[in-house]
Design a protein around this nucleic acid. Structure first.
Lengths: 225, 225
DNA sequence: CCCAATGATTAAGGCAGCATTAAAAGCTTG
DNA sequence: CAAGCTTTTAATGCTGCCTTAATCATTGGG
């Protein structure tokens, strides 16, 4: 799952970021409404976790905008408020779920899992398709023609990111940020190694390789079939 | 990315200039408000980094003017102040982000990257168009008619500069300053060599060459189609 | 018409970015 | 805890970009 976490409490986001990554998800973090809005505009998230109180733009407003812009994934709001009218306001803005601070991280994870499983969103979220390539998110497999291969977590995350940005270059730094997080200490060529494994698997499935290197720019997924 | 750095602290600007160039960006530096305003008037920047306190004209005033003149890129303010009303004033003037001195250079870079990635900027930033020529900034390509070529970093920077000033002559010194920086020791004909490579690539894409030499004046990009 | 001066061209070397491989370190599972 | 798999590291090789240096062409002035 591909999700955006918006809260100005750095300690909280670090903790949740960590837990969600451990659960195999891909996480972006924003600490204020402005950055969140920017990421939402370009990112293609499955789930949003929005704090109510935020610098620049309130979570509720972000929620409204997301729905207005056609966002179909799940939205979970975090808030210290518990007044009924606020909850109604939240649901009216398009939120799917609510969680009152303080909460147990496990509860958030559970609710997110539930939201993610919800069939309310289109199947496109569960299988990404670009040209002749299909990425099955449920069981981490790529399909091309008659063949298919199972991917490991890292391989899957990498391919998912590239396929979501298909046709555009994805810089290496962005990949690091998405797969390992900002503060994770990981060597430069962890990416190279993962890419090598991924490419090798894709070779077993198709003659034409879809991931091209743009020297100095990053990588790009393209399928010209 | 194409950015203007305004701060009267020469040591700071030199450091940031260096780091930003290493990250593949194109940088202009100004040390006071007057020079900055002049550069802003003619330059076509993606991002501004403005110090609050400046000789001649305050950063906040520059920020306001930029927005008043229709500047749509990102603006990041640097300041030693941290009072809330100042921040609000900054945002009211049109700033997108804030950074308190002293700061870690890495943080500034990260914030600039975030600002740059923002989809809020017009598409014109992502693809420059002059006549029949289109420059794709995302994957560093020029397109002309049905054909297109990939450019390297230097080729791209050079063409970007010329196309932004399309119709006007661009002196060689300006190109040196933009591509290599003031203090970078680089031989004269680094430019010639780069231009040669660029022209050769453009030949593969169109019969009519758009970059003309104005002896003693510089170069000019024109497209008469 | 010749001579600086300016720009054009070409080939070659150094270097940074990326690729590749093997092996070590972590995890998971029975 | 041992086996098997995934993830990360370290070391090394390779490719292509950038810059340089040397040489050639063109322009405008004396």
């Amino acid at each position: 799952m591909y999700l955006l976490l918006v809260d100005d409490d750095g300690r909280l986001t670090r903790l949740l970021d960590h837990l969600l990554r451990q659960a195999g998800h891909t996480v972006d973090v924003a600490h204020d409404g402005r950055v969140a809005a920017a990421l939402m505009a370009q990112g293609d998230y499955d789930l949003l976790v929005l704090d109510w109180m935020l610098p620049h733009e309130a979570g509720i407003s972000l929620c409204q905008r997301a729905r207005a812009e056609g966002f179909e994934g799940g939205i979970l709001m975090l808030t210290a408020r518990d007044a009924l009218e606020d909850r109604l306001e939240g649901f009216a803005a398009g939120a799917d779920d609510y969680l009152l601070k303080p909460f147990e991280p496990e509860e958030l994870l559970a609710r997110l899992e539930a939201l993610g499983r919800r069939a309310c969103r289109p199947l496109s979220q569960r299988c990404l398709q670009v040209g002749g390539w299909t990425l099955e998110c449920d069981d981490r497999r790529v399909i091309h023609g008659e063949r298919s291969v199972a991917l490991t977590l890292r391989e899957f995350q990498l391919l998912e990111l590239l396929m979501r940005r298909a046709g555009h270059s994805v810089p290496r730094e962005l990949i690091y940020e998405r797969l390992w997080g900002r503060d994770q200490a990981v060597t430069d060529n962890a990416l190279d190694a993962t890419l090598r494994l991924l490419r090798r698997k894709l070779e077993r499935v198709a003659a034409r390789q879809p991931i091209e290197t743009l020297r100095g720019l990053g990588y790009r997924f393209t399928d010209e079939a």
